[in-house]
Design a protein around this nucleic acid. Structure first.
Length: 101
DNA sequence: TCTTTGACTAAAG
DNA sequence: GCTTTAGCCAAAG
């Protein structure tokens, strides 16, 4: 998850894949729910595969997540992010690095 | 041992 | 774009 740059988002499935656990997106959600907050994971950047926040619209968690994402410049409308604009892809970090140096 | 329940997903209509 | 449907799989009851 730490590979996901601020200002971009990824899906639970992508995280599962990166962890070498294809097909276990739900497990990622469970793990996050259990994760102690002192781990300071960028959990707000993880969304459903269609860009929806995983929490019910209007719930406290959803509002918190929306706030964190917008701080990073990610636009959240109707409990959803436009993946076309913000979805992270493998190799993105490497690409930024090359552009930089 | 079932059965239910999710911070899920892909495909079809 | 939506909703439905069928898979998914570890945990909890």
């Amino acid at each position: 998850m730490q590979q996901i740059p601020s200002g971009t988002v990824a899906s639970y499935g992508q995280i599962a894949d990166l962890a070498g656990l294809p097909g276990r997106a739900r497990l990622v959600g469970k793990a996050l729910g259990r994760a102690p907050k002192e781990m300071k994971l960028p959990w707000q950047r993880v969304l459903r595969s269609d860009g929806q926040l995983a929490f019910p619209p209007g719930s406290l968690s959803a509002q918190t997540q929306k706030g964190l994402l917008q701080e990073e410049g990610v636009v959240v409308l109707n409990n959803r992010v436009r993946l076309k604009d913000f979805q992270w892809q493998p190799g993105f970090a490497e690409l930024l690095f090359e552009l930089k140096y």
